[in-house]
Amino acid sequence: MSTGTVQRSQGSYVDRPSSSSLADVVEIILDKGLVIDAYIRVSLVGIEILTIDARIVIASVDTYLRFAEATNRLDLRQQGGKDLSELMGGMVEDGSRGKTQGAVEGIKNALTPGDDDDEEEEAPRRTRRPAKQSSKSE
């Protein structure tokens, strides 16, 4: 047993990135740390765009539509146990049949903010108020 070292065995249920990804860093630390008021904060080139792209308001129509679409693309027939045709009262087959293959992909896309040309698969999920930080430069 190693001390202070993480077991990164395949058996782990925890996702342990070996180094922080940009998405992690944006999400976790972008607005953190001591602020020395008198001194300039840089404008965030690139990062700002990335963050704004991921701006989320939980109770918004946009969020609702994304989750509705993810639910739409869900392939309930893959699930064992329940009789889903009963549950759905005769669900519309052709609505989901064509989407069976890409169900997970579809959810991922539907739940990923912004357009399909995300540079990061794990888009940052929160806005760290870059605008506020920039304004401190004055």
């Binding site: 630390i29 972008l30 607005d31 953190k32 740390g33 001591l34 602020v35 020395i36 008198a38 001194y39 300039i40 904060r41 840089v42 965030l44 930080q133």
Partner: peptide, 18 residues
């Protein structure tokens, strides 16, 4: 840690000012 993007002018006296 200081906040990302903390920059001081080259002639600033970090010891005395910060």
């Amino acid at each position: 840690p200081l906040a990302f993007g903390t920059v001081l002018p080259g002639d600033a006296d970090i010891g005395a000012e910060v």
